[in-house]
Design a protein around this nucleic acid. Structure first.
Lengths: 360, 360
DNA sequence: TTGTACGCGTTATCAT
DNA sequence: ATGATAACGCGTACAA
């Protein structure tokens, strides 16, 4: 098996051993090859491929013909050296098993490509593994880094700041030099959840929290508590999971063992909400008949008929656009890029069957 | 709004206008900066950062100290020019809304990083948009391309072959120079599905097909038909969707309108299978009581209690490893890389409640 | 062991 | 409009 062993070292050794004093056999065609074939200068080739290059139609045609014969494609790597800009954005994700993060990456890849930027993707198991990933990205001279990771620790923030390139975080709360944040209005959404459930007649509620260290989860909880207080409702029962379906299922199952069931659940994300619904049904309860459930993220599964889950849509498209906007303005103006900015996108409440009014 | 407009052009113009004769202001520190500070030669810096470089401990220490002061990180871009290898792999995906493809990308990013390769991600809406994406990847001189796209057309295959670098496809059936394929054993799985459903007593079955042009779907169908024939069962009713939940729901809903319900469904993927289950239940049927359902992919949602769906696990981890193996051997030996190879990974049947034996 | 000089493929500048 | 040349930052053969 090859995994785990560093291929780079292996290759270097291989080259040293097998072909000691041989220059790299360049299979990709270079502009000089095209120039030779066309009988023109290298600069003419370059100009023929540059949008604003001043070349006569005859010259251009001759060059393009030669290029087509050889299958030449301009090499962007030297351009990086000259311009100092790679036009690559490092995108750090931590697990695509959550459809929400998959959607974020999907949208973001699209908007970046639309403006001619590339995505250099790094997947890391958790924020602790961030450092190693950053070394790689720094080496490839990415122009900026975007991460959907919960950047909670100050150490991680420092590592990001040290790159001295624009950083854009999703739903982080950290403020540090170079770090901008685009976030959902978690607090307002939490309040809205409380009011919705109160409107539906629920008094005894439960809050199904996500990972403790996540700023997003904490903000949602605070908003929910505020909203309940504003309606003079008692504080919710609090149960905690990570952010997976199975955590949601297990947490609710355990709660139901000893407890009288709450009348409504607000869940930190949709995955856990789906788990909660299945646990409630496994316990013989109906949704929304006996219990109302609200989630967060509006993942595709929330719209599936089996769940029909009321949720808060983070409007991934708008967040991606906001992130792109932060990014491009930071790239255009390195002076202000050093002090990060924050953009808040409102979450849109999508009401579905899981909070339907009681039909008696 | 910035989207749609090419940032590169914009930047070039900006540079020409605002700072006409100024060389790029290099914010990243170069080895020459470190050399100057440490009072040594540039090569000494290079050697200090190379694994096998012959440097005295004193020299190395001096260099590393200076590098730490400046925050120097070796630039990998020139290395690309010298070695002719970027150590970047172009990964082309087409929509991460299907959790299966998200999982494929996730696993693949991990195994690539483990051997020190980078992922240059390109998301394309469909195989038709492939050409534009390939130009970008070619410009960045990726060492190879991996795609989970259904590369069906010969035109797409030609575009890939023309890159003259190793290509690895997932579940494609195309054979062309440079193109290797790693695929699930779709046909055997289709047969197994037929036998399983026959064992459960089903006679009248339905095949919920995915996109017409997908080689994977066709192979699964062929296997299913073979298996049914081997058990002397009638051919299935065939209904077709794209590959989404909503297609599966709609297709089954429409089928049930005019038809007596089949006793079992085999679905081209799990997303459609979930839609099928919900449509069956909306029609008042129970799963597995009235109807058995089998899916394909074993996405996380198949294990959710609400569906409890029997499915074929493509063993994404093994497919990712097989793809990496094809990739690394192709990179190591360009001679044989030109003729593609195929690797087949068996699909593992995961039996769940949706095909439970009838309890009478 | 350490320093010098060159080359990778392209773009920008300058001279023609 | 076209050609020649320098420069980007690093690795490396060669000289010292």
């Amino acid at each position: 098996m090859l995994a785990g062993q560093n291929l780079y070292t292996a290759c270097t050794i291989g080259n040293d051993t097998i072909m000691p004093r041989e220059r790299t056999p360049r299979s990709p065609i270079s502009s000089i090859d095209v120039a030779r074939l066309a009988g023109v200068s290298q600069s003419a080739v370059s100009r023929s491929f540059s949008p604003g290059g001043s070349v006569s139609p005859a010259m251009r045609e001759k060059v393009l013909a030669a290029a087509a014969v050889l299958g030449y494609r301009p090499n962007l790597i030297p351009r990086i050296m000259l311009s100092g800009r790679s036009r690559m954005i490092g995108v750090v994700v931590g697990g695509l098993d959550n459809p929400f993060y998959a959607a974020v990456l999907d949208h973001f890849a699209v908007v970046l490509r639309a403006v001619g930027l590339q995505v250099l993707l790094v997947q890391v198991p958790d924020a602790l593994a961030l450092d190693g990933a950053l070394d790689q990205l720094a080496g490839y001279r990415v122009d900026a880094v975007v991460t959907a990771l919960a950047v909670g620790t100050r150490q991680a923030a420092t590592a990001l700041s040290d790159l001295r390139i624009p950083i854009v975080c999703f739903n982080s709360r950290l403020t540090a030099p170079w770090i901008s944040t685009v976030r959902s209005d978690n607090r307002a959404a939490g309040q809205a959840a409380a009011h919705l459930l109160a409107d539906r007649g629920a008094r005894r509620t439960a809050w199904l929290a996500g990972p403790r260290d996540s700023a997003a989860t904490r903000a949602r909880a605070r908003g929910f508590l505020d909203g309940l207080a504003a309606r003079a409702l008692p504080a919710p029962v609090v149960i905690v999971g990570q952010d997976t379906y199975h955590d949601g299922y297990a947490a609710v199952r355990d709660l139901l063992r000893g407890h009288r069931p709450p009348e409504a659940f607000f869940c930190s994300n949709d995955m856990m909400a789906c788990g909660a619904i299945d646990a409630l049904r496994a316990h013989g309860l109906t949704v929304p008949g006996d219990v109302r459930v609200v989630g967060y993220d509006n993942i595709p599964q929330a719209a599936w008929h089996g769940y029909d889950l009321t949720s808060f849509d983070q409007q991934v498209d708008r967040m991606a656009e906001a992130a792109l906007d932060l990014l491009t303005s930071a790239l255009a103006d390195p002076a202000t890029a050093a002090k990060g900015r924050t953009r808040t996108v409102p979450a849109r409440l999508v009401e579905r069957g899981s909070t339907a009014p009681q039909a008696r």
